[in-house]
Design a protein around this nucleic acid. Structure first.
Length: 929
RNA sequence: GGGCUUGUAGAUCAGGGGUAGAUCGUCAUGUUCGCAACGUGAAGGCCGCGGGUUCAAAUCCCGCCGAGUCCA
């Protein structure tokens, strides 16, 4: 990054000099002429622990208010926070920074900022340093990024670097920071396709703020290189993106040994009590250990296991105790810190409506939740998670929405606890079995099993080791366990590259946006338009009434007439703002040219069916939310002519009662017959008015969005709809399906389709009832009766068959012939199937010196041979007897020496089969005698 | 979105082409004033559903449904 980017008027006016750090070699700005190092760890150790850098100690809420108020009085507009789950983004699940609130449309300039300049304190969640949380003394999964942002354009600059640094500096000094202690380190920043110069504000070894001047974007033609990527200047809009860590400010104001003791001391101490740990920060020796640990951890990246050991070694030697002693002191304390942090993370996640799942954001919630449960288990903390979350909610009165949602949150947590307990139980049984297996072989449990337990069954390796050692089998757990798991995945992954009509897309760039008439004129089904371009079977018009596929609503169909020629339009797609009509029945050439006038008729029925299912979808989600709760979010939707489906987030299976209730409520909404209202609104205004619930079906681009109200549901929606809910007609929910953990799929039909599906259902009923000669309402008991009778008859049949078999045994004994000194019975048993033959054979061979070759003729030819064990000793092998016999019958067979079965299709070969069997038996007996 | 595992008696699981099993639980019965414990015996299975391969499928293959889990 260029040096002049950092030459600010503010620095020269205020006696700053630019220096190079003697330790890391990076450049920084300071007022302190004596200073040698940049102020950042590891060049400078933490000095604020035990010696706060601010004059006053402030709690989280006080500090947040101080900050927001500071910027508010300096002409910044205060913004409400955004949710921690980034519903408005499709590239990230969680809000990771304050600027994420304004990406991508505000930062790209497509949408004007909600205020300019603005200030906000945005709760963020980052799970990338999960292992360091609790251990480093400073890492958190959840933090608030306080920020002031400006969005500057070519025509209007609010403020840029000078004012940004000035405001930051004023803020720090207003809190009582010694101006000489503040340094600003130059550190170019890049992320998410943008980049720019950046200054890190450092006090007492702690980075308290990051001031990013975003003025570059990734570009192939760019001339500025950063981290191996090329960037070019953004001329039209350049952005001040700052981030001040609220929790760090509070920590710096208190100077406590760890950030955790600064921000939620009461919860930490409550959990310490529960874990039976004496957490006496007044105890100077104990406090010193924590402080030493945090100071050194500030200088080492402890996500590596080896580094953690190194940290322990240093702290131990500084304090003069053994590493083992230190570890035994630190580990439980670190776990408590981590539990405290993680439960706060869960509070925000669940409070903002994430439903734990095995996919997407829900998976991240479950990951944090299970980590927490594991640590609680290790510390033998037995209270439910909901109580810990409840402590956080009480501690966060600034977030009343969490309190409101607590019942649902607690329910979700209990549900998750049960699930994890079941997973662990299942896992333990598997490990016990596996351990016993290896114990017999006198071996350790192999690494493969350890990985499999985790990867396939979700059992953490520590638990595998623990359970195995209870069984007396040892397991070696390598340090790089998780990367071994990861490598197992990466080797199996492959990517499929999609081919696109690049040539066509390139031509689209030069075309104007297609005028979409279907919003203003939703009921007109015929229009004329001018052809702007064609490509193979694709036609672009200047305007259209045809709805392109989008928002789960399929494209309109129709016919296009040009002169006397008719073309079927079988698909309509939208690329950027251009609608493409795709023809189905072209033979060699499209009889349409640029500039032609065409008349288009839309398949009205299809459109109406789609519209009706689309409106019904909004009705159903409204009903689902009313019945199941506010955590219901649309996770996907698809409409067709005869049905529609909606995927919603929900943490348990929808019961039949709930389903009935949803169906009822949905139909009540229909019967209320309220108007369906669509209006184009300013995006920011709509978000302010309705919140992010707008984006159930994804985030549409653009400054203005189409806001659609159906019943109490308000969403950004581009689909075609009916005029009022009454027009939907009946809604019949056809089924639910759990497509993923935490996601339920509802399938339903609306209007005519609903009537037809109900007719189908009742016809199924009457058909079933007719088959049983009963009235439909008699079906359940009748079927019950039939089924149990069927079972009884089956049993009786079995019993009779075996009775029959025994009675035949007597009779068959008379047909016994003597072959090579053994008793042989070889005969046809009419109407017998394999099972019957087996029974007879089994019983006959209870006699000594007995061989039977039985043939049945039920469903083809069945052959069973059996021999008593003494004959087997004499060389008889029924497997080969049956093989030979069934081969003669044109089939195959086999089995054990004592008993075997086979068969063939050719009943006329019956004699041949018996003879072949006999021959084989004779040979066997001869051979061994 | 991708990967892996899995579905057998009320529960937990074995069997992995050749007559469906074990343990616990249930019921009956014996010993007991009664209970527990124990002995003896019995009941209890569309082997998730539907196709296919085969003489033969719980078992192999395909599809569907259900459950679990790791990752992006």
């Amino acid at each position: 990054m260029l040096e002049e980017e950092y030459q600010l008027q503010f620095f020269s006016d205020n006696g700053f000099t630019r220096k190079q750090c003697t330790s890391c070699g990076k450049f920084y700005w300071t007022r302190d002429i004596e200073r040698q190092t940049c102020g950042d760890a590891p060049c400078d150790p933490y000095t604020f622990i035990g010696a706060p850098v601010f004059k006053k100690q402030l709690e989280l809420s006080e500090m947040r208010e101080y900050y927001l108020d500071f910027f508010e009085t300096r002409d910044h507009e205060r913004m409400d926070r955004y949710p921690v789950v980034a519903r408005w983004r499709d590239d990230i699940y969680l809000t990771i920074a304050s600027i994420a609130d304004f990406q991508p449309f505000v930062t790209s300039g497509q949408v004007p900022p909600p205020a300019n300049p603005l200030t906000i304190s945005q709760p963020c969640i980052r799970l990338s340093d999960l292992d360091a949380v609790g251990r480093s003394g400073r890492h958190l999964t959840t933090f608030e990024m306080m920020a002031h942002h400006t969005f500057n354009t070519k025509t209007k600059e609010i403020y840029w670097k000078d004012d940004t640094v000035r405001l930051c500096d004023e803020l720090l000094t207003s809190l009582g920071t010694d101006p000489l202690a503040v340094t600003y380190k130059e550190e170019p920043w890049a992320g998410g396709g943008n980049a720019g110069p950046c200054l890190e504000a450092l006090v007492g070894g702690l980075e308290v703020a990051t001031l990013v001047f975003m003025n570059l974007q990734k570009s192939r033609e760019g001339t500025i290189e950063l981290n191996g990527d090329m960037y070019s200047k953004m001329e039209d809009n350049y952005i001040v993106d700052t981030g001040y860590g609220l929790e760090r400010f509070v920590w710096a104001s208190k100077g406590s040994p760890t950030i955790y003791d600064a921000i939620f001391p009461t919860i930490v101490s409550e959990i310490m009590d529960l874990a039976g740990i004496e957490h006496q920060l007044e105890d100077t020796e104990y406090s010193n250990i924590l402080a030493q640990n945090a100071r050194l951890a500030g200088m080492i990246d402890i996500s590596e296991k080896a580094n953690l050991f190194e940290l322990r070694k240093q702290v131990a030697s500084n304090i003069g105790i053994s590493v083992e002693k230190l570890t035994s002191i630190m580990e439980p304390v670190e776990s408590v810190y981590s539990i405290t942090d993680h439960t706060r993370c869960l509070t925000f996640m669940l409070g903002d409506g994430i439903v734990p799942s095995n996919v997407k954001a829900g998976y991240l919630a479950r990951l944090v939740l299970r980590r927490t449960l594991r640590m609680m288990r290790d510390l033998d903390i037995k209270i439910p998670l909901s109580e810990l979350v409840s402590m956080h909610i009480k501690n966060l009165p600034e977030y009343p929405e969490f309190e409101e949602r607590f019942d649902t949150i607690a329910d979700i947590l209990h549900h998750e606890e049960d699930k994890f307990a079941e997973t662990l139980d299942r896992g333990k049984r598997m490990i016990q079995k596996s351990a016993q297996h290896y114990k017999k072989k006198n071996e350790d449990i192999p690494l493969e099993t350890l990985i499999d337990m985790y990867d396939t069954h979700g059992i953490p390796p520590e638990i595998t080791r623990e359970v195995a050692s209870e069984e007396g089998v040892s397991v070696s757990l390598p340090d790089n366990f998780y990367s071994l798991v990861a490598s197992k995945h990466s080797s199996a992954e492959e990517k499929v590259v999609e081919e696109k009509d690049i040539e066509f897309v390139d031509r689209l760039v030069n075309l104007p946006s297609t005028k979409k008439l279907f919003y203003d004129d939703p009921h007109r089904m015929e229009f004329e338009a001018v052809v702007l371009d064609t490509f193979e079977n694709k036609i672009v018009l200047d305007s259209t009434l045809m709805y392109p596929e989008g928002g789960g609503q399929p494209a309109d169909h129709g016919t296009m007439t040009i002169n006397d020629h008719q073309i079927d339009i079988v698909d309509v797609q939208q690329i950027n703002d251009i609608v493409i009509h795709i023809a189905g029945n072209i033979e060699n050439e499209l009889h349409v040219r640029k500039g032609d006038f065409v008349t288009v008729h839309i398949d009205e029925k299809r459109r109406m069916y789609h519209a009706s299912h689309h409106t019904a979808t909004h009705v159903v989600i409204d009903a689902a939310r009313k019945v199941l709760g506010d955590h219901i979010w649309q996770m996907g939707a698809q409409k067709s002519e005869d049905r529609a489906r909606l995927d919603v987030s929900h943490y348990k299976r929808i019961t039949q009662n709930e389903l009935n209730e949803i169906e009822l409520v949905a139909n009540q909404i229909v019967m209320k017959n309220t108007k369906v209202v669509a209006e184009w609104m300013d995006r920011i205004e709509a978000e302010k008015l309705y919140g992010f619930k707008l984006y159930q079906g994804g985030v549409p681009p653009g400054k203005k969005i189409r806001v659609l109200k159906v019943g109490d549901d308000v969403e950004a929606c581009a689909g075609t709809h009916l005029k009022s809910t009454g027009n939907v007609g009946p809604i019949k929910i056809l089924k639910t399906e759990r497509i993923q953990d935490g996601i339920e799929r509802l399938e339903y039909a609306a209007g005519e389709a609903a009537v037809r599906s109900m007719q189908e259902l009742s016809s199924l009923l009457t058909q079933s009832a007719d088959a049983l000669r009963v009235r439909p309402e008699q079906l359940p008991p009748t079927i019950e009766r039939f089924f149990s009778e069927w079972k009884e008859l089956k049993k009786e049949n079995d019993k009779l068959r075996s009775d029959l078999a025994s009675s035949r045994v007597q009779q068959l004994m008379q047909d016994c012939e003597n072959v090579e000194g053994v008793h042989v019975i070889a005969t046809l048993i009419e109407g017998a199937d394999t099972g019957e033959l087996m029974k007879i054979a089994g019983e006959l061979t209870e006699n000594d010196d007995m061989v039977v070759i039985l043939v049945g003729d039920s469903g083809g030819m069945k052959i069973v041979a059996a021999a008593s064990s003494d004959v087997v000793k004499k060389g008889a092998n029924c497997g080969s007897i049956v093989k030979a016999a069934s081969k003669a019958a044109g089939g195959g067979g086999g089995g054990k020496p004592t008993i075997a079965q086979g068969g063939g299709n050719d009943l006329s070969k019956l004699k041949d089969a018996i003879n072949a069997g006999m021959d084989t038996l004779k040979q066997q007996l001869k051979a061994s005698s």
